[in-house]
Every structure is written in structure tokens, then in C-alpha cells.
Design a protein around this nucleic acid. Structure first.
Length: 508
RNA sequence: GCGCCACUUGUCUAGUGGUUAGGAUACCAGCUUCCCAAGCUAGUGACCCGGGUUCGAGUCCCGGGUGGCGCACCA
């Protein structure tokens, strides 16, 4: 009889393998709703993705609590006046001209600037721009038809509340945090800088969302705010303890020279060399790095890139992006650090007729409107980049090298064979005991032992514990480490400690 | 939004007008198994949606959706 050749499945080391892993293992699904064909820019998280996300949120919250931050949560819908005050209404509505024939769409102001280089376009009203189009007989470059009126394309999702009041879904969480300023000032007892953060959904009606979860129309932000005095920005206590931290900084002057490689520079030097202006802002760069460093990104994929002056948002005095290098999309912004000055509070003070001037320095009677420094993470982008940069194809397996503290399953428990009842029962007992200790344990008895190891490797589970015949005699089990695939034999009573502290301690 | 291309089970794919829509893998049930995707047996599961052409459409045509690339957009 002919023996069938062992089938060895070749795992392709490419981005398609990664993309299918995201779906197969239940990290990210979409566009949602998939059964109806999907709506572009909207995605869902499966159980594995949600477990990962919750682990990240838990870590961030724990760290921030230790640093004295308070957490708030605001509505996702806010009335029109909020966005008038914040400047988003003006900045997020683009005037566009549409060709009636071929449906081509252009930004009206940019298009006019190009066609009429000698005319001042900035600040013109829609009517004035329409007049320019008609008087100069400006035509569609595609099909030569004359343009008619200007329409607005609104990047904010608009809705009606109650009896028809116009409201918008927030395009960022930050603004909604600022609206709580007078409350926070009281409840945080004027201990400046006030430190707060908010996690939640924000919405942008992207014209054409692409790149999967990197440009969603509904996405999660995690935004930290410092309300701080001008004096404190330059004289910031915590800066001293972090000033020797080196960060990979790519300022805009380097970018202008087409330099792509950041300088590893310590923060004190960055201040001295005027790459950064304010120690408090430099501390924000440090803090943004500190939180991300808990998640297990490889060192070499991370950099800080400064916005050039004309790339900055309407409110920003200085802006740097924390970027991660990905195979699929190149450098991806996962966090923006913005010096928003007193722009937001001044505007909201004015539009709401509130006085947001406070006395921030006990030595002085002077009042001032606080400055705001912001650290804004895109949680979905963190999840995507973390998964992609931790994804590895090894000889005959996929290994998702997630850190112990973010992996969806902390440990998996297997009976070596499933047809020996005593082994199964012991395995289930160990599994249940771990669940009781709030360890995310996963029980699996189906297929061969090797297949079960592979399943967990794809989910990034750092440890697998196998209960075998010897376990019944001497209360020991094998624990197998994901990356090395090495196993050691430990006592059942040691499991909990090893899961909590990592296997390194045991080896030493 | 525009142009070009694509869309078949959970995933990857074969299928150019008549197929019980094929395979791999996954999953599930059972057997086996003293540690890394083994083997055996059985099973579930798909033509993106709508319309048209045709005796007959996964296949051709039109519209829509979604994705990829290019343009535009991305405070």
C-alpha cells in the first residue's frame, strides 16, 4: 500500500496571511454590517480584538490613575454652538464644486486658487466664490461643462435632536472634555495642572475611507488633557525626572531636508536646541511614549514626527505625531501631541459667556485662562499597529508575539489526551481555579496537542499548560512558552505565580 | 466622489452559459494519540445585493454595495 505523503502546509509570510488572521481569529471584522454588504468606514471587534482592546484600556487607566489623572465621559452628540466655538464647523465644512455631468468633485477654494493664482481666495464666502466661477467661466477639467453652485461637504456627521435642533456627532472627544472645565476646576480643587482624560467614540464623515481601521468614520479616541498655566509650561516639576529620556525625534526642519531618520535625542537637549519649546510639552511627549511602551511595540518601529507649521490644526501651536512603521501602510500616526494653547477655553468662554480666567498661582493674584496640552491616542490604530508589528510567520506556524499584559488569553489549559477522564478532570479543575483568580484562561481539548499549541500561537497566548499522565501522580504539569516553544515542568501550585510574573522568574 | 480592476463556504481558492459548484484548510462529532498543524471515519457550510438578456446565469449586460490601485479628500 502506498503511504500518503505527509502534507505540510506552507504558511506564506505576507500581509494577506495577516489580514486573514484578523478575521479568522476574531480580532477585527468589517466593514459592518457584513451581512448587508457593509458600510465603508465602519468596523466591529470580535472577542479576541475586544479582549486586546480592554487589556490596553485597563493598562492605560491603571497608569494614569497612578499619575493623578481623573477620567470623564461626555455625550457623543453636542449642539451646533459647541462646534461653532471650537472652530470645527468652519474648518470641517469644505466648500466643494461638483460637475453636473461627470460627478467629479473638487475643493472649491483650492480649485480656484489653482485656476486664478492672482486672486485672493482665502476668506471668501460661498457666494463670492460662485461669482468668481461664473465671471471667469470656470469649467470642469474632465468634461468641459461649466460649474454652477458651491455645495458644502461636512466632515462632521449632522443630526437633529428633539424638535429639530441641529447637532453634530463629535469629531473628537477633546472638545467635550473642555466643556467641563469649570466643573473640573472645582472638583480637582485647583491643583494645577489639572489632569483629565476621556475615552470614547468620535465620528468623521470621511469622503472616502480607506486603509481599513486606520481611517474609520466611527472610531475610539483616548485623550489626555493638561490644563496648565503659562508659567508652569516652562517650569514643570515632573520634567526633571524624565529629561534624560531619549526619544526618536524627527522635527520639521529635518523633514524639509528630506531626512527620514529621526534623531535619538534626550529631552533636555531638545529644549536646549530649541527643537521643543516648553518642558511641559516635552513631558507630554515623554508621557505619550511611556504609555505606549507598556504595550510591547518593537523599538525600531517608533518615531515622533513634527507637523510643519502649515500642516497644523487650527488650534495648535506645536504638534508632533507618534508614528509606528507598518508593512501595509507605512508610517501610521497612533497619537498626536498638541499644544492647543488657550484657544479652546477662550473660544468656549466667549461663546458661552463664561469667565474661564482662574487664579492658577498661589503667589500671585493674577488670573489667566489655562493653556491646554493634549495627548490624543487613536485606540483602533494602536490595536492595528500592535497586531501588525507583533505578527510573525515562523517555520511552520504563525506566532503573534503579544506581550503577556495585552494578550487576549493569558494562558491555555490542555489535557494531553481527551479520552482519559482523570486527565480531563484535572485540566478542567486547573482551568476553573485560574478563572476564579481572574486569570483569562482558555480550555481546549480538541485535536492533537500540537494543533492546540498552534491555535494559541495565532492568538498570542504567552503560555500553554498541558496536563499529562505524570500530573496525576505528582501534581506537576508542563508549561510551554510561546516564543521559544520550550517547556518546563512545574508544580500545579506554582501556576498562578508564574502566569502573573512571567516564566523568566522560574527559569532563574 | 471619479477612473481602472476585483468580489465563489470561517479562510484561501478552482470553475467562460447547462457542474449533485470542485479542492485545500478551518470548524464540528467520533476513533486514535505519553507534547508541537500526524492518521482514520462521518458531518456542517459559498456564488455580495437588485434588475435584465436567455429555454437556462456563479459565468453575459445594467444599477447598487464593498475592496484594491490611481486622482481628489484625510482639522
Amino acid at each position: 500500500m502506498k503511504k500518503r505523503k505527509n502534507f505540510i502546509m506552507k504558511i506564506e509570510d505576507n500581509i494577506e496571511t495577516f489580514n486573514s488572521l484578523l478575521k479568522r481569529q476574531g480580532f477585527i471584522w468589517g466593514p459592518s454590517p457584513e451581512i448587508y454588504g457593509g458600510l465603508a468606514g465602519f468596523y466591529s471587534y470580535g472577542p479576541a480584538g475586544m479582549a486586546l482592546k480592554n487589556n490596553i484600556l485597563f493598562l492605560f487607566r491603571k497608569e494614569l490613575r497612578a499619575l493623578g489623572f481623573g477620567e470623564v465621559e461626555c455625550p457623543t452628540v453636542m449642539p451646533e454652538i459647541v462646534w461653532e466655538a471650537s472652530g470645527h464647523l468652519e474648518r470641517f465644512i469644505d466648500p466643494v464644486i461638483k460637475c453636473k455631468k461627470c460627478e467629479s468633485i473638487f475643493r472649491a477654494d483650492k480649485f480656484l486658487k489653482e485656476k486664478l493664482p492672482n486672486t485672493m481666495i482665502d476668506g471668501l464666502s460661498f457666494e463670492e466664490m460662485e461669482y468668481l466661477i461664473k465671471s471667469n467661466s470656470i469649467k470642469c477639467p474632465e468634461c468641459d461643462l461649466e460649474f454652477e453652485n458651491i455645495e458644502d461637504y461636512n466632515l462632521m456627521l449632522k443630526t437633529k435632536v428633539g424638535s429639530g435642533n441641529t447637532a453634530y456627532l463629535r469629531p473628537e472627544t477633546a472638545t467635550t472634555t473642555y466643556l467641563l472645565f469649570n466643573r473640573l476646576d472645582q472638583v480637582l480643587r485647583r491643583q494645577y495642572p489639572l489632569k483629565v482624560f476621556q475615552f470614547g467614540k468620535a465620528f468623521r464623515n470621511e469622503i472616502s475611507p480607506r486603509q481599513g481601521v486606520l481611517r474609520m468614520r466611527s472610531f475610539d479616541q483616548f485623550e489626555l488633557q493638561f490644563f496648565i498655566s503659562k508659567e508652569q509650561e516652562f517650569n514643570f516639576e515632573e520634567f526633571d525626572s524624565v529629561k534624560h529620556t531619549k526619544l526618536p525625534l524627527l522635527d520639521w526642519k529635518l523633514q524639509n531636508k528630506n531626512i527620514e531618520i529621526p534623531n535619538q535625542i534626550d529631552l533636555e537637549n531638545a529644549i536646549n536646541e530649541k527643537i521643543l519649546k516648553k518642558p511641559a510639552y516635552a513631558y507630554c511627549l515623554y508621557l505619550s511614549y511611556y504609555l505606549v511602551s507598556k504595550l510591547g511595540f518593537p523599538e525600531e518601529v517608533l518615531r515622533y514626527r513634527q507637523h510643519s507649521p502649515n500642516e497644523r490644526a487650527h488650534y495648535a501651536d506645536d504638534a508632533w505625531d507618534l508614528e509606528i512603521y507598518t508593512q501595509q501602510f507605512g508610517w501610521v500616526e497612533i497619537c498626536g501631541i498638541h499644544d492647543r494653547t488657550d484657544y479652546d477655553l477662550k473660544r468656549h468662554g466667549k461663546f458661552s459667556n463664561q469667565n474661564f480666567e482662574v487664579r492658577m498661582n498661589i503667589d500671585s493674584n493674577e488670573k489667566e485662562v489655562p493653556q491646554i496640552l493634549e495627548i490624543a491616542y487613536g485606540i483602533d490604530r494602536i490595536i492595528y499597529t500592535l497586531l501588525e508589528t507583533n505578527f510573525n510567520v515562523e517555520k511552520d506556524r504563525i506566532n503573534l508575539k503579544l506581550s503577556d499584559n495585552v494578550a487576549p488569553n493569558q494562558v491555555a489549559i490542555f489535557p494531553l489526551v481527551k479520552n482519559k477522564e482523570k486527565i480531563r478532570l484535572l485540566a478542567k479543575k486547573i482551568h476553573n481555579d485560574l478563572l476564579q483568580e481572574l486569570i483569562y484562561s482558555y480550555y481546549d481539548e480538541s485535536g492533537s496537542i500540537g494543533k492546540r499549541y498552534r491555535r494559541q500561537d495565532e492568538l498570542g497566548t504567552p503560555y500553554c499548560i498541558t496536563i499529562d499522565y505524570d500530573s496525576l501522580e505528582d501534581n506537576t504539569v508542563t508549561i510551554r512558552e510561546r516564543d521559544s516553544m520550550k517547556q518546563i515542568r512545574i508544580n500545579i501550585s506554582e501556576i498562578l505565580l508564574i502566569i502573573k510574573n512571567g516564566i523568566q522568574k522560574k527559569k532563574e
